[in-house]
Simulated scan of single mutants.
Amino acid sequence: MTILAETYLGNQATNSALQQQVAQARQAEALLEVYLQTDDRAKGRIHAHSTTGVELGIIKSREQFLSTGDVFITKLGQLLLIHLHTQTVMVLGFNGDVMGHAIDLIYLGHVLGNHHWPILVQGDRIYLEMVADPAVMEATVKNINIPGLCIDYEVRSPDAPLQFSPHTHH
């Protein structure tokens, strides 16, 4: 049986009364907690399982972005506390001058696009969403053999994730 939660009560980090309610529910072992991926933040309907294995359906407005500490009340009157996982992304950077490697970089973009791996370019960095095995992604990038290319990883806070655009064909 899926338990529905569609009434948003607020965020316990900014509401001391709600924080007390959560603490009381936790003490009474009546608190449901769920860990969601950062890309679930904007979904209107989320299917998940609580930390205790309870099947949950969370229904909310698509305009509302979830944050760690958000609290819902279920149809059965239980409090549901939201936690968001951190986001790990691959970061591509360069040592030295990239000006002589324009064709290599275009080819890199082509390869990443063919794999449907979402990217985000910010400043002098290319961020890749981790949508495949990290070893496979690293091997694919290294196989292009761009001199000075550096591969690193960054862990992003659930409150400051990178927003990758979905890749579609028209």
Rank of each mutant, 00 (worst) to 15 (best):
Q27M: 15
G113A: 10
D70S: 06
L76A: 15
A13F: 14
A48Q: 12
G109F: 05
D40G: 01
L56Y: 15
N15E: 04
A25S: 12
D97V: 10
V91W: 00
A135N: 04
T14Q: 14
L66C: 05
G77F: 08
Y127N: 01
L105I: 07
P134N: 07
G44L: 10
F94Q: 05
I119V: 13
H116L: 03
I103S: 08
A48P: 02
G93E: 05
A102T: 11
G93N: 08
S67Y: 14
V91I: 05
I82F: 09
R26E: 02
D124K: 11
A17Q: 15
V54W: 07
D70W: 12
G44V: 08
A42S: 12
G123N: 10
G77C: 06
K142W: 00
Y35R: 10
V89H: 00
L128F: 04
R41N: 02
L31K: 09
G77H: 06
E33Q: 11
L128R: 02
T52H: 14
Q78A: 06
Q122K: 15
R41E: 02
V131G: 02
I119E: 01
D124S: 13
L66A: 05
E55I: 11
K43E: 03
A25P: 01
H49A: 15
D133I: 03
Y127A: 00
L81F: 08
D104T: 08
R45E: 03
A48G: 05
Q19F: 15
Q24C: 07
R62V: 12
R41T: 01
D124M: 13
Y107L: 05
L32Q: 04
I103K: 14
A23F: 14
I58Y: 08
G93F: 07
D70M: 08
S16K: 15
S50V: 04
G10C: 04
R45K: 09
L84N: 03
D104L: 08
M137R: 00
L112K: 02
T88I: 03
Y127M: 01
L92M: 03
E63Q: 14
K60N: 05
N114F: 06
V131K: 07
A30W: 10
I58Q: 02
Q20W: 15
I103Q: 09
N95M: 13
G93A: 08
G109L: 09
I58A: 04
L112P: 02
V22Q: 04
K43C: 03
L66K: 06
V136I: 07
A132W: 01
H47T: 14
R45S: 04
L92P: 00
L32Y: 07
A135R: 09
G57I: 12
L36A: 04
T68E: 06
N114D: 10
V54S: 06
V54N: 07
H101Y: 13
G109R: 03
V98C: 02
W117E: 00
T86E: 07
F94A: 04
V98T: 12
L56C: 05
G44Y: 11
D133N: 13
T88Q: 01
K75F: 14
A30H: 12
L31P: 00
L92W: 00
L108T: 00
E63V: 13
G123S: 09
R41G: 00
L79E: 02
A135G: 02
A13T: 15
H110A: 10
A17N: 14
